[in-house]
């Protein structure tokens, strides 16, 4: 059985229509499998469609008709908006290049947010968030706003947020794209730690050679076509 296959994606395409009515296919018939507890990396030149593919797999963008994206046996390509929102909240975690932390909220509150959205009480969410902040080594910054944090700290915080609600998969879009080499290395190390300690599954889109070398599986994407590189 495909018990260890966390995500199975088949025939995923994405076509955009620009203002002049021209069709542009960004992702061309991509298929991939994510194995549980492994880090899978997608790399390739800018504009190859990596981020779009990641967004589709994470359920924040709709693929073209005919795609099949199975997570725990459910096809997220056909899910209703309500079910999909719930899925994003509980089953996946997202890390972005520009961290996208909420500037009005403290570090602690940012990590609490996915749990509050899931309906947890403030006390429960706060307890869990403190554990996660500890895990990424950010507890000493709990009451600071994102603007008061360094780039590396911001990215750690967004990883802690991605771990809220204990998701199956963490999707990371260029997580080290905005960081210097020291911070990049620290983040890469954090991913490995989390893979080992929490047995999380990662899909990382990146340019970072070190991060690619750390991945258990890697795919190259070029002009919308995904190639397996085992």
């Amino acid at each position: 059985m495909d018990n260890n296959f966390i995500l199975i994606a088949r025939s995923v395409s994405k076509t955009f229509v620009n203002a002049h009515g021209e069709k542009l296919t960004v992702v061309k018939n991509a298929s991939l499998i994510l194995e549980g507890g492994l880090i899978t990396a997608i790399y390739g030149p800018s504009g190859a469609g990596k981020s779009t593919l990641l967004h589709i797999l994470a359920g924040i963008e709709k693929p073209d008709d005919g795609a099949e994206i199975l997570i725990e046996g459910e096809n997220i390509a056909n899910m209703s908006e309500k079910k999909l929102s719930d899925f994003r909240n509980k089953k996946i975690g997202l890390v972005f290049q520009f961290h996208y932390l909420l500037p009005e909220f403290t570090a602690l509150e940012n990590v609490m947010m996915p749990m509050l959205i899931a309906g947890d009480s403030f006390n429960k969410a706060e307890q869990k968030a403190r554990v996660l902040l500890d895990l990424v080594g950010m507890n000493y910054r709990a009451n600071h706003k994102p603007a008061e944090l360094s780039g590396g700290e911001q990215q750690r915080l967004s990883i802690a947020r991605a771990l809220a609600n204990d998701p199956k998969i963490i999707f990371a879009d260029e997580p080290t794209g905005n960081l210097d080499s020291a911070n990049s290395e620290a983040i890469s190390k954090l991913f490995i730690d989390l893979k080992i300690s929490l047995k999380k599954t990662f899909l990382i889109v990146t340019h970072n050679k070190d991060l690619i070398s750390l991945a258990d599986r890697s795919f190259e994407m070029r002009d919308g076509v995904l190639n397996c590189k085992f």
Partner: peptide, 14 residues
């Protein structure tokens, strides 16, 4: 705008 998109990606319904 970006916060809204983030909230939506975290599973907040429209």
């Amino acid at each position: 705008k970006r916060d809204i998109a983030l909230f939506r990606s975290l599973g907040v319904l429209p």
